[in-house]
Write a protein that binds this DNA or RNA. Structure first.
Lengths: 199, 199
DNA sequence: AGATGCATGTAACGGGTTACATGATTAC
DNA sequence: GTAATCATGTAACCCGTTACATGCATCT
């Protein structure tokens, strides 16, 4: 149940609608925790029922039929967020398709193996680019979310707020680099096995 | 739906019961893909209904009331396995509690942050030990599963069978090392922030 | 007038976890 | 005889995905 806390933390920087949260989640900041929009809307309603957030309903469009709802964290919500952040959690259990599949590449022709290592490399190279870009943005305190967050916090804490996020995103970048290197060693391995007649 | 393929691959090395598969899954080999025992038993029944495996039912114990079922892959199952291995899949979407939480360590007292980085380090150090041990076992072709797998495959393919698995497990070890390093940099960061009065 | 994109949802389904149930074997 | 462990399952629940529905806005 981490989605709710990711939502609480994001909302703590300032009120947002479900749509804005969904955008924030999948394009920029929280690529650490994936969530789809139906999930976000549903979870927000749930958080509202539990009084961890409150919604401000406003008309959307000119006809006044459609509405949008901007959510704000309540005091209880903030407490729940702090409680969660300070709690040590069980590590996520491993479930990694790419590595699982690579375990059994013996069952596939060399070209299929190569194709998959190449796809792996491409995906993580792209991720790496994103993480690196994001680290720069954070350091420059240039993202919307960060500015809103900093505006609400006392100045002496700004360094910590930025530093933890930078640390996380640098960790993700490091990971992506490792995946790229792993895929490249994989490609070399396929070549080697084929050259030596083992495939 | 990777569990079924992990099961098919494991069974392809030789018949096993659900219990043996569960053990294989969580203690030694397939720590790349976590699965609990109810899930394994259920999936095996499903694979059986789809004719991807067949079960050999045998009495268990002396009273002859309880039974056990040893599963074997069918030709269709092997084809499905090969098809899956050769297919490029969407990468698993990121969902990482530890990194998500670390993003918000600003909300926690420094000691709570330290405790979590320490737990992270301990967990991945232990994982690293496991992966390294496993790589050694594989290279020595010393695991049960590997020996059964090799016994069924033509000799000229042995090198590839071992090499792919070693590559995967070395990748996992590399990852674990990166997580340990990340946690250590995290600990240093908390110290630094506290020393400079930012917490 | 129709297509595309913004914005907010609901419903059905599937995979995975936790809790529970049951029987056999081994060690004390 | 009782506790622990081996072994096989079922049931309820929760989280997340996919597909569908709806309304407004903008561009052509």
């Amino acid at each position: 149940m981490s989605l709710r806390h990711a939502l609480l933390a994001t909302l703590d920087a300032g009120a947002m609608t479900g749509y804005e949260l969904a955008k924030t989640f999948d394009q920029s900041a929280n690529r650490v925790w994936h969530a789809t929009h139906p999930q976000i809307y549903t979870e927000l309603r749930k958080l509202e029922r539990e009084n961890l957030v409150v919604a401000q309903e406003e008309p959307r469009g000119t006809q006044g039929k459609a509405t949008k709802r901007a959510y704000t964290v309540t005091e209880a919500g903030r407490e729940e967020l702090c409680r969660w952040v300070a709690t040590v959690e069980e590590p996520t259990l491993p479930r990694d398709v790419a590595h699982l599949k690579a375990t059994y590449f013996e069952y596939a022709p060399p070209d299929a193996a190569r194709e998959q290592f190449a796809a792996h490399r491409a995906y993580h190279a792209e991720q790496l680019r994103r993480w690196e870009w994001h680290v720069e943005q954070l350091r420059a305190r240039g993202t919307d979310l960060m500015q809103r967050r900093l505006a609400k916090a006392p100045k002496e804490r700004h360094a910590a707020i930025v530093a933890y996020k930078v640390h996380v995103y640098e960790g993700m970048a490091e990971r992506a680099r490792a995946e790229v290197a792993w895929a490249e060693r994989g490609l070399a391995l396929v070549d080697e096995l084929e050259r030596d007649g083992f495939m």
